[in-house]
């Protein structure tokens, strides 16, 4: 296990929470913005061993929850499951950036659905919003595009660290 890759993953997730709550919160002209924290978790998980990937998803989710209005643990649960999915997809297909982006789109869609379902059980009102379909469709696409943009950077950071050690 590469400890420095895990640390880099955590740093990237923490930074993405800051970026999400500041920059991305001002870029919602279409009513939906990409979820950069989700993207970072999904992309980083591909370059980690299964256990660290799960811990990264959990930690990122908790950190995100702590800065939001959702119950603490909601995103932690969703991101943990997404990280598991990302690890499984990464091991079953060593693909290109495009296939990685498609995996991000699929997993993001699963993440939004899971978030909405579990959130509704815990009193969140996402399912009642009329923009829920818009979110279901646009957020995964935005996440896929974002993953193409930042995926190589994350890979470079994570893999470079692997090589260095």
């Amino acid at each position: 296990m590469n400890a420095r890759s895990i640390v880099w993953g955590l740093v990237l997730v923490a930074l993405s929470v800051i970026v999400q709550t500041t920059l991305f919160s001002r870029l919602d002209d279409l009513g939906v913005v990409a979820d950069i924290v989700m993207v970072v978790v999904l992309v980083s998980a591909r370059w980690l061993d299964p256990e660290p990937a799960l811990l990264l998803g959990f930690t990122g989710g908790v950190l995100y929850d702590l800065n939001g209005t959702t119950p603490i643990g909601l995103r932690a649960m969703v991101f943990t499951i997404l990280a598991y999915g990302a690890v499984r997809l990464a091991t079953s297909s060593e693909g290109s950036h495009v296939s990685a982006a498609i995996a991000v789109v699929v997993l993001s869609f699963a993440g939004v659905v899971l978030f909405t379902m579990v959130g509704t059980l815990f009193g969140q009102g996402s399912l009642r919003g009329i923009s829920v379909i818009q979110t279901f469709v646009l957020l995964p696409i935005f996440n896929g595009v974002l993953s193409i943009a930042i995926g190589p950077l994350i890979k470079r950071v994570m893999v470079k660290e692997k090589v260095l050690l």
């Binding site: 709550t21 991305f24 919602d28 939906v32 913005v33 979820d35 996402s126």
Partner: peptide
Amino acid sequence: VRGGTGPLD
């Protein structure tokens, strides 16, 4: 305002 709380809330 420090920031928003995410795309889903």
